[in-house]
Amino acid sequence: MPESKSAIVMDADRIARTLTRIAHEIVERNKGVDGLALVGVRTRGVHIARRLARILKQITGDDVPTGALDITLYRDDLMRHPVGPQPVIRRTEIQFSIDDKKILLVDDVLYTGRTTRAALDALIDFGRPRAIQLIVLVDRGHRELPIKADYVGKNLPTNPDESVQVRLQETDGNDEVVLQQEATV
């Protein structure tokens, strides 16, 4: 039986430093955190967004409003799967108005870009932000839509038969990014 090989491409330490670096980039590009809000894409994007909010508070002393966005109902592959379970919906929680804000959309992995497209559609239904910037922990390439991240934790070239697993303390018990070679059946 062919084995699947996996390699840790980011460990806990690396992730922490990367998020700190991104936080500084945010402050630099936006000249502070005024008018910014973080919206994490469920599920792991939410945790990353919250961590960024904490770091930004440490750096600037200011609170950045943070929300959670469930994009399931906006996916373009909804209802198209002939078999298989429906994706599970979770609550969207954006307790602030996004009108005129610069929204920092946060996700764990940027791949085809379809999730981001769905998130953009969802956000537009919530209001009219001044701008939307995209933050991802890992960009693994193979875009199918013209989507680009504004802040990237790590650029990771991959093959389509590989998968990128982001594990976080909050959901999985530890922090690491793993590149897994899918076992060919």
Binding site: L73, Y74, M79, D125, F126
Partner: peptide, 17 residues
């Protein structure tokens, strides 16, 4: 529970169906 939140949005619509 997740659906209930949609009623509180300015645009009470999602494209799911």
């Amino acid at each position: 529970d997740a659906m209930k939140e949609i009623a509180s949005r300015p645009i009470k619509k999602v494209p799911a169906l």
